[in-house]
Amino acid sequence: MPPTTIHIGNDRTVQRLGFGAMRLPTEPTAARAAAIAVARRAVALGVTLIDTAHLYGWGANEELLAEALHPYPDELLITTKVGVVKTPEGGELCGRPDVLRRQVDEGLRRLRLERVELLQLHRVDPEVPLADQVGTLRELQAAGKIGHLGLSEVTVDQLNEARTIAEIASVQNRYNVLDREHEAVLDACTAAGIAFLPWRPVHPLLDAPDVTAVAAELEATAAQVSLAWLLHRSPVMLPIPGTASIPHLEENVGAATLSLTDDQLQRLTALR
């Protein structure tokens, strides 16, 4: 079995299977009450990292988590992301220092925190020097508002540049057993001991014969096999599958107990 925990920076240890809160409904209806129940069930199941973002409902997702879980258990780390602004067309990247500072302050208020333990830049804004974007977050870290800094959807070159500006504790790129576009970024994170939080950790099309065959062998679901493969793939992997369903949540969390044989690992790794 792969390790069950991972370090964020040098001082936070979390379980290696997290929870992505993006799919939780935030409207004040019965669906919101169900979403609160899902978040609470995740913590009850032992999840110790929950991922959200300013973009998710333009702060409503952060407020939902605070309603569901505050005061937070000591072991729970909630990570949020900044760097996208609302526009009439939907949203656009914006890494201007004033925007990043405002969104960090808004996130702290919504989450009812004095410091966010892991703050990630949602995307690199190509119109703003990376040094200004990461440098602003580093300043907020020095001010005590941020514990650790992370990036999302970056290249190896962007990661390397960011690491010359500040210590980077995590990277959140799209990655799963059937989509490995960011393999080089994962390898760079593995070499540096940087936590890698794959978003979309379960590919929407899981009918590949080898995935379904391994699932049948283990009496598990294809989604569980996909998550288990990620946990075996690298010791810095920290999948954050999301759902608005408690049964689906419990299924996802159960993937952490699956042990893949060398043969099963090889068959899954050979998929592209």
Score class of each variant (00 low, 15 high):
N176R: 08
L69M: 12
D187C: 04
L271I: 14
D157G: 12
N252R: 00
L260H: 12
I36K: 12
P201L: 09
L249V: 12
E217Q: 12
H182P: 01
D157C: 01
N173L: 00
L137T: 14
W199Y: 15
V225H: 03
G150N: 11
Q15A: 07
A191F: 01
E217M: 12
V38Q: 04
N10C: 08
A42V: 00
N173K: 02
G46E: 12
D132L: 09
G193S: 11
C189D: 04
P239F: 15
A244W: 11
G18I: 00
L65V: 14
G144I: 01
S245P: 02
A188D: 07
R163L: 09
Q158F: 03
P235S: 08
W58G: 00
L197N: 04
D98C: 05
A220D: 07
P2W: 13
P201N: 03
A66T: 10
R233I: 08
D98M: 04
A37H: 02
R110Y: 10
R180Y: 01
I165K: 03
L55M: 13
A222N: 04
Q133R: 05
A192I: 09
P235Y: 11
E67A: 14
A66S: 14
G150W: 12
G144L: 08
L258C: 06
Q120P: 02
T136R: 07
V82G: 01
A60V: 00
L69F: 09
A213P: 02
T243M: 07
T52A: 12
E106C: 03
I78M: 13
G91A: 15
I240N: 06
L45T: 04
A33K: 04
K81F: 13
P239D: 06
L258R: 05
R101A: 11
L24C: 01
A191W: 01
T164V: 00
H248V: 10
P126F: 11
R163M: 15
